[in-house]
Amino acid sequence: MSSSVQGGRVTKNTTTTTTARRRRVQHPKKTRASIKSQPQGHEYERNGSQYNPSSSLPLVERTNKLSIQEFTSKYIPPECLTYTIKNTEKYSDGEQKYNFSIHSAASIPTTDLNACFDLIEETSSEAYRNSSTGWSPSKKKKEMKLPDMKYLVVRREELTPSDGEGEVVGFMSFMITYEDGKEVVYLYEIHLSAEVQKQGLGKRLLLVLMEIGRRVGVEKAMLTVFTSNGVAQRLYEAIGFETDEYSPRPRRLRNGMVKEPDYRIMSVRLDGGPYV
């Protein structure tokens, strides 16, 4: 339901809003007439790719039908999978490079998935417990394995190949989906370990998310965040996210008291770019 930063890390609890989204979302229905009205010849879809008349699936379903290799080839350019910190005194050679690997829920190695869950539990379980949603490890693990979930896993590049590929120091999970009938890329989780914070990695991951959404051709990038989490909200706002029209509003109770929501839905329209 909500994103939160604990010690500078960002996460997202979707238990409540995922249910709500399922109630609200109506997937587009394809009729024979609507299929015939699709552009023909060399016309193009709004993401710039040439229209394929043999494909009658809507954008979201068509995108999620791709293998992770096909998805990466079509929508994630190589420059989105690396990030270099330069002119830093923290590293002897003055810079540090990070590599991002892309996975689906089905293809992510178990060790990486466990490392991602450990980051969520370490940084956000207390925030969940203090929210109206509560903390449920089993529900979170189930959510992490949703069929259309995708992951960008962050590793610090080691100095020599013999050092191995390095441990997981962060990750982002997202999904191409529907939100209130709109095609969106939805951020589920974004976490960075304490040792790699304040280096621009969080901003970089968010920009990669927006670039993926732009290339796919969805309308918006969306996320949720705990209202108590000022650090995360300031980061999102700096990139252009604003309160979404479907974000919950305060409710007046029967006794006259006003109950403020403990999470905020934020979104940004993907009508600019490129973002990376």
Rank of each mutant, 00 (worst) to 15 (best):
L209M: 09
L201W: 08
E211N: 11
V218T: 09
I190L: 14
M222D: 03
S173T: 15
M175I: 12
G213A: 03
E183K: 04
S228T: 13
R204G: 00
Q233K: 12
A194K: 14
K182W: 04
G240E: 07
D163F: 12
V168D: 10
Q199G: 14
T243F: 04
V169T: 12
G213Q: 01
M222N: 11
N229H: 07
G170Q: 01
D180P: 00
R214N: 05
Y186C: 10
V168T: 14
E183I: 02
Y186N: 10
L201V: 04
G200M: 03
S193V: 12
E165S: 13
V196E: 00
M210S: 09
F171H: 14
K182S: 11
F171V: 01
F226C: 03
Y188W: 06
E179Q: 14
A221Y: 13
A232N: 02
E219W: 01
H191A: 15
G166L: 01
F171C: 06
S173Q: 08
E237M: 07
A238T: 10
Y178F: 09
V208M: 06
K198V: 11
L201K: 05
G181V: 05
G164D: 04
L235G: 07
L187I: 00
S173L: 04
V184F: 05
L223G: 01
A221E: 10
V184I: 14
V218W: 08
V225Q: 04
T227K: 13
E195I: 06
A238H: 11
Y188Q: 09
H191C: 15
G202S: 06
G202N: 02
T243W: 05
K198Q: 14
G200A: 04
L187G: 01
Y188L: 10
T227Y: 02
G200W: 03
Y188S: 15
E179F: 11
G202V: 02
A194N: 10
A232M: 04
V208W: 06
G181L: 07
V185H: 04
L209C: 08
E189T: 00
L205W: 09
V196H: 00
V218S: 11
Y178C: 00
L207A: 03
E242H: 08
A194M: 07
I176K: 11
I190V: 13
K203V: 06
F171K: 03
Q197F: 07
V168N: 02
K182H: 11
Y236F: 09
I176G: 03
L205Y: 12
L207S: 06
L201I: 12
M175F: 00
G170V: 00
T227H: 06
R214M: 05
T227R: 15
N229V: 00
G202P: 04
L209N: 10
E242K: 13
G240K: 08
V169W: 12
F241Q: 05
F226N: 15
Y236H: 09
G213T: 01
T224A: 15
F171G: 01
V208P: 06
G240Q: 08
G200C: 08
K220R: 15
V169C: 14
E179H: 13
M172S: 05
E183T: 08
S193R: 14
T243Y: 09
L192Q: 10
G217T: 04
K182A: 05
T227G: 02
N229I: 01
E237K: 14
E167P: 03
E195Y: 00
T243N: 12
L223S: 02
Y236V: 10
E167D: 15
H191M: 07
